[in-house]
């Protein structure tokens, strides 16, 4: 028998040694599951980047105009948390952006889901709405900002209207593909069990479309989060996007960087939240 030294579990966790399954494989290149997490290198790169930031800050190698020092950024975070930004508390800037995203996504879903269902179920609805949906789909929501400003001005309605449009077509397409993904045998089975058309819609098509609707909601959340920040860059006095835009005008690079980090973190939290909801509400996803 060949000698086999068992690597420590720490080495496996760090991705420096193969786990017991991968060790037995002779074919590793091309087998995705044989590629370890490489955690050691992840930790390494984060430490390297942080060290670089600390070193450049301590020795003043980069002008704070281009990139803030680590100490200055820390001070700024404390100041933002205690005083807010331009007399508006930090949480309000974040809160209003999140509120806009949720309002836009929910209103888009409220209209988009029935629209998508009708397009999946009736040829009249499909014929009527298909040209509109297909035309609007490739247009980036940001291209609509000028028109939205002309129609609604720059108040809250305008921003939510923009986000509504951004999510509407995503939700319509998601709901429609949810309907078309229903296996015909399930519909047949339900009819053979005596279900009416309305019951089929409620008890077969709707639950069957939920996974796709959820994927649509997740995509909408992502797109709307990106759109809200951009929309606030253009015209707003509150919100994370406006915060970094105004900070730029005052050459407050540290606030800009903090704003960008906040945007990233919130985007990540939204994605995790949606995945959590998905696990709770549609555990059957992909198991039909």
């Amino acid at each position: 028998m060949r000698e086999q030294k068992t690597p420590s579990s720490l080495a496996i966790w760090l991705g420096l040694a193969d786990n017991s399954f991968t060790r037995q494989k002779t074919v590793k290149f091309g087998d995705e599951s044989a590629v370890s997490s490489g955690r050691f290198y992840s930790i390494l790169i984060v430490i390297l980047l942080l060290s670089a930031w600390i070193i450049t800050s301590v020795f003043g190698l980069i002008k704070p105009f281009y990139w803030p020092t680590i100490g200055g950024t820390g001070d700024r975070i404390i100041k933002l948390l205690s005083e807010g930004f331009r007399n508006v508390p930090l949480w309000e800037h974040v809160g209003i952006s999140v509120y806009r995203v949720f309002a836009g996504v929910l209103s888009g879903a409220l209209i988009g889901i029935p629209l998508g269902f009708s397009m999946g179920l009736s040829s009249v609805a499909r014929g009527l709405f298909d040209p509109i949906v297909e035309f609007m789909r490739p247009i980036p929501p940001l291209a609509l900002i000028p028109l939205i400003i002309l129609w609604f001005g720059i108040d809250e309605t305008a921003k939510i209207a923009l986000l509504f449009l951004a999510s509407l077509f995503i939700m319509t397409i998601a709901a429609r593909s949810g309907v078309s993904s229903v296996r015909i045998s399930k519909v047949h089975a339900a009819y053979s069990l005596g279900a009416s058309k309305l019951q089929i819609l409620r008890h077969v098509i709707l639950p069957n479309a939920l996974p796709e609707i959820f994927t649509g909601l997740r995509t909408s959340m992502g797109v709307c989060w990106g759109t809200v920040v951009a929309a606030e860059l253009v015209a707003a006095d509150k919100g994370v996007g406006s915060m970094i835009m105004i900070a730029k005008n005052f050459l407050q690079t540290d606030t800009v960087v903090i704003g960008i980090i906040i945007i990233g973190v919130i985007g990540y939290i939204i994605e995790m939240f949606m995945r959590f909801l998905e696990r709770v509400f549609i555990p059957w996803k992909g198991k039909g």
Partner: peptide, 20 residues
């Protein structure tokens, strides 16, 4: 003329409602 509860059907597979 159409499907009805008096004629039940058992399919090869995949006709169960996986959300129930």
């Amino acid at each position: 003329t159409g499907p009805g509860a008096e004629r039940g059907m058992v399919f090869q597979q995949g006709a169960l409602f996986e959300w129930l």
